[in-house]
Design a protein around this nucleic acid. Structure first.
Lengths: 153, 153
DNA sequence: CCGAAAGAGGACAAGACCGGTCCGCTTTAA
DNA sequence: TTAAAGCGGACCGGTCTTGTCCTCTTTCGG
């Protein structure tokens, strides 16, 4: 597995659309453009705004705008924004208390190396690598209205 | 997130124990040694045997044995053995049909680069990096099971 | 030759977690 | 003042992992 969440996938599509179109765009507008359900788009954008990847303007004529060009946006940040910190196991960094036997655990602290490797790999890839600049956006994985069947793996 | 399954975590612990002790060991024995519930250990070992990482010997006086030293066992193989192929999204490699809009999807094929990066990162790490050779094994993340009895049946 | 030990394989229930939606509130331009 | 749009949170349903058990097969030992 090692799957990342569908929300992250949506985020990439939305961000790509945001850059392709440029300027200020509303959540409903992006929903139509990408074919993703509006509440979901709104949720993704909220998370992205929280992480500072997009800028949300409130009020009438509001909308969202890219905080940076996609080429300056590493994939790792998007994943962190949506899914939280990148960590393969519960035993991460200073996460004490999750493991009762952490003091005697031989693997203790060893996973950090793995996490670091993953993190580095994802930081080296920017969204510009995933979304061609001139691409018109599209939906992925599922159709907007169809039941969320996802024959995977 | 980007979590890997707990089973994979168990697999690392079991494999570490397998190398630390050496020779042939039974699933019940490994369960006691690691503190993981016996059925779970058995399940993990079955998967590992399927992937060719350990060798299972049937019959009385049977047990499991490492197929290779841990230093020749990349982490990616363990993950594949337990969780299936490493792929961040459903759109992987030649997985056609999962996405109805794949033909027009601008991101189509782009995730492969990410998957490849992850895969490479995980292949460069061997289990020997995770499990110190002289370590005595232990359980991680959770207690063996809710039933308080250690698998001493 | 038979029984016990141990692995193989699959089925299954419970629980956790994600996905997706909806609600009310706040902000701002017309 | 009103409507459009973002903000924040709560909520429920469905999926998937997790962990267990059962049965069958294999093999050694008496």
């Amino acid at each position: 597995m090692l799957r990342l969440s569908k929300l992250t996938d949506y985020a990439v599509v939305v961000l790509a659309r945001l850059e392709a179109e440029g300027g200020l765009q509303t959540a409903p507008g992006l929903a139509v453009a990408t074919g993703i359900a509006e509440p979901t788009v709104a949720k993704v954008l909220k998370n992205l705004a929280h992480a500072g990847l997009v800028e949300g303007l409130r009020g009438a004529r509001g909308g969202y705008r890219l905080a940076r060009p996609l080429s300056a946006m590493p994939l790792s940040e998007v994943i962190c924004a949506i899914d939280g910190p990148i960590a393969l196991t519960a035993c991460v960094d200073g996460a004490s208390g999750s493991c009762e036997t952490e003091t005697i655990c031989p693997v203790r602290g060893r996973w950090d190396k793995v996490n670091e490797a993953i993190r580095t790999a994802l930081s080296d890839i920017t969204l510009a690598d995933l979304a061609p600049p001139t691409a018109s956006s599209c939906r992925r994985l599922t159709l907007p209205a169809s039941p969320a069947h996802l024959p995977a793996e």
